[in-house]
């Protein structure tokens, strides 16, 4: 677990991060959200000491990180960035094996781990592993970047707008993959983004920053349903506040059990926004709902979707 306790980062007179206190829960995906200059990226870099705190302390599992050997600290935290930063003179496999090699893992164990990670990020180890970064598409490079960040099985994954430079379709695919990887690995992920939709879709919780200060922290639903102030509502909601609400709630919360409806069912874990979209496109106001294994759970109706 990572805790920020009154952390301030000064650049000259400017407070990039201002008295930030928060606790990252183990296994959650915490989104640090804000406009440019809100201090979200600086806050992330304070955690692996790419920047050092001017005031306050950050603790990892109770230990003050400023007292830890910096390289050892960084090797415990995966790090993925928007520009990916793959080493161009190394193959994909060698890139992914970077931190395990630094940690002195045996060669065979590294090779096995690389293979496992390439499969996890859905790249073919036999085809992609021997390629060089410049031979990959942008999306493939970022998959490799994520695999490299996960390589040494770190406690924490730090991601600095990792999907910001990708086209919308690739970004959507990788966001869903990250959710899947998060569910499978249970890693604590701290994810910086300025994209509200990305934050709402991925976050277990969202921390909204403004001018270095924490404005509000909570689940996506909480921030949307009870924003602390007008800034939070404006930042998160924008023009389609209602649709955003539908984004963060799943169908499972509105199922009426014991009923049935014709047509292809939706899964209970899908968002209400998806359910609404299905209703509009099929011209119906009732959809059958099933769980992940296809077992019928009931129906979701337009009225229930709207009124909650």
């Amino acid at each position: 677990m990572i805790t920020f306790d009154g952390v301030t980062k000064l650049y000259g007179e400017t407070k990039a991060v201002d008295a930030l206190s928060l606790a990252v829960q183990p296994g959650e995906m915490l989104m640090l959200v804000g406009a440019s200059g809100s201090g979200k990226s600086t806050a992330l870099k304070l955690m692996n000491r790419l920047e050092d705190c001017s005031l306050g302390t950050i603790r990892l599992d109770g230990d003050d990180i400023s007292r830890m050997p910096v390289d050892a600290l960084r090797r415990r935290m995966g790090y993925a960035i928007q520009s990916v930063g793959l080493f161009p003179h190394w193959t994909v496999a060698r890139n992914i094996g970077t931190v395990p090699r630094l940690l002195g893992w045996p060669r065979a164990k590294i090779a096995e781990r690389v293979r496992e990670l390439l499969l996890l990020v859905q790249l073919d180890p036999d085809v992609i592993g021997t390629r060089f970064p410049h031979q990959l598409s942008g999306g493939q490079q970022q998959r490799v970047g994520v695999a490299r960040a996960l390589a040494a099985d770190p406690d924490v994954l730090l991601m600095d707008e990792p999907f910001g430079a990708l086209d919308p379709i690739t970004r959507g695919v990788l966001q869903r993959e990250l959710l899947r990887i998060h569910r499978r690995t249970g890693k604590t992920i701290i994810f910086v983004t300025h994209d509200v939709n990305e934050a709402l879709m991925l976050g277990t919780r969202i921390a909204l920053l403004d001018h270095g200060r924490l404005v509000q922290i909570g689940t996506p639903l909480k921030l949307l349903a009870s924003p602390a102030n007008a800034f939070v509502r404006a930042f998160l909601g924008g023009d389609d506040y209602g649709l955003k609400l539908l984004t963060v709630e799943s169908v499972s919360s509105r199922v009426r059990a014991g009923e049935t409806a014709p047509g292809a069912p939706v899964v209970a874990s899908a968002s209400l926004r998806h359910a609404l979209s299905e209703m509009v496109s099929r011209g119906t106001d009732r959809l059958a709902v099933v769980d992940d294994d296809g077992v019928p759970l009931g129906v979701v109706g337009l009225a229930g979707l709207v009124r909650g």
Binding site: L50, D71, R75, S83, G85, F87, P88
Partner: peptide, 27 residues
């Protein structure tokens, strides 16, 4: 040597010497 590559090397916990000899000099 691209800044993103240096950032990644540092962020992954390479020491300055490791970054120099494994990444910067070869590039």
């Amino acid at each position: 040597v691209p800044a993103s590559v240096l950032d990644a090397a540092r962020g992954m916990g390479m020491s300055r010497r490791q970054s120099l000899w494994q990444v910067e000099v070869p590039l």
